[in-house]
Computed example of a mutant assay.
Amino acid sequence: MSVPTALLNDGNQIPVIAFGTGSKLKYKDVTAVVEQALEAGFSHIDTAAHYANEQFVGRALRESGLARADVCVTGKYGGRDDDVQGAIRTTLRKLGLTHLDLYLVHHPSLIVNDDVEGLWGRMVEIRTAGLAKSIGVSNFTLELLQRVVKTGMLPAVNQIQLHPYNYASWKEVLEFSAKHGIVTEAYGSLAPITTYPGGPVDPVLSTIARRIGGTPGQVIFKWVHAKGFVVVTTTERRTRLDEYLAVVHLPDLTKDEIDAIDRAGALGPPSSALVRVRELVRTEGARRAALGTMVVLSVVLFLHQLGCLAL
C-alpha cells in the first residue's frame, strides 16, 4: 500500500504516516509489532532512545528483509550530557543502521543550561557527518523554535502532541512552522477517542465518517493530513494498522468539515468527572447503570456545590 510523502525544507521526504514505538510500547520487546507494521505497509518507523526498545526495532528491520531505502527511520536524542554524536552512534548501533532518515531533539528538558543554540549546533554536526539525513525537534514551543531558526539552520520537523482539543493552543507554533517550512508531526491525535470520549468532537466525527465511509479515527487522521501534518500513531492490532493505512485512500474532508472539527475541538474535552460517569455507565448493566448514574451525578453535583469538584 503506497503512502504519500511530505517534502521537508531540506529537500528530503518522509511518509505522511509513521508507526510509533512509544506510548504503551515503551520498554518492551517490539520486534513482533514492528514486523507486523512493516508487513502491513508502514514505511516510516518512529523510535527514540527514551523508549528503550531500539534494539528490537533494529531486529525487526533486519528480519523484514526490506531494503534500507524502503524504510524511513526516525530516532530521537535522549541524552542529558550534550554528547549528541555519541547518542546517535549508540542509537545506530542498536538499530544496526549507518544513518537515520530523521533525528529529533526529544524534549526541551534535554537542553542543558538553556543552551538551545549549542545543542542545535551539535545536531547540525551530526547531519553534516552524514549520521542523519534530516534533523528536527519535538515538543518545542514557539520561543524555542524561534531561537533555533535564528541559528540559520532550520529544523525540518517539530513533533508535538496534537489533536482537535488542543489544536488552538498550538496555533502560534503551527503558523510559525508553516512560515518556515517546518513540517509538524502529530502524535496522540486520537485523544478525542482514546482519552476524551463523549466530547463535542464525537458527533462531528461520526457524521463525517458516514459521509466518507470510514471510522472516527480515520476522520481524525484525515483532519491531521488536511492541515498538512504527518501522523505518528501506534497499535498492536493488525486490523488497526490496516485501518490507519487506508486513510490515504479515503475521500478528502471538505473545508466545512475541517472547520466543524476545529469548532468542536475549541469547545474543549468533557470534564474528567463526566468522563468517569460515562465510563461507569458503560461498565454497568442497563438497569444498574441507570440507578448508578443517578447516584454518581448526585454526588458530583453535591461536591461541585461545596466547591470540592470542578466540572
Rank of each mutant, 00 (worst) to 15 (best):
E39G: 00
R62V: 11
L8I: 01
S2C: 04
G79A: 12
A209W: 02
L303W: 10
L110G: 00
A60K: 00
L250R: 10
L119E: 15
A264M: 03
Q13P: 00
T254S: 11
A209N: 06
T235L: 04
G65Q: 07
A132N: 01
L119I: 14
T254K: 12
T90F: 04
I14K: 01
G96L: 06
K179P: 01
I14V: 14
V296N: 02
S64G: 14
Q159V: 01
R89D: 12
V112P: 04
L104I: 08
L267K: 02
H106D: 13
R237N: 05
L119G: 14
K150D: 11
C308K: 13
P15V: 12
D101V: 00
G65P: 10
V137W: 06
F229I: 02
D10Y: 04
I212L: 08
Y196D: 12
H50G: 08
V232N: 06
V219N: 08
L291Q: 15
G58E: 00
G20K: 09
L190V: 14
V295F: 13
W120F: 11
G96N: 12
L25M: 12
L8P: 00
L309N: 05
L291D: 15
S272M: 07
V3G: 06
S23D: 13
Q55R: 12
I261A: 01
I135Q: 07
T283E: 15
R147E: 10
T239Y: 03
L104P: 08
I111Q: 03
L97T: 10
T151N: 13
A264P: 11
S134I: 11
Y165P: 13
V299N: 13
F176V: 03
R68C: 08
G78M: 02
I14Y: 03
D82M: 06
R240F: 12
T74Q: 07
Q305T: 11
H304C: 09
C72S: 13
R282I: 07
L311K: 10
T91K: 08
V296I: 15
R237F: 06
G307Y: 08
L301T: 14
E284Y: 00
T234A: 07
C72M: 09
K26Q: 11
G96C: 03
G268I: 13
R122D: 15
L8D: 12
D114F: 09
M123N: 09
G213T: 05
F302H: 10
L301G: 01
V296A: 13
V116L: 14
L297E: 12
A69H: 09
L145V: 02
D81W: 09
V277G: 00
R89M: 15
V275A: 07
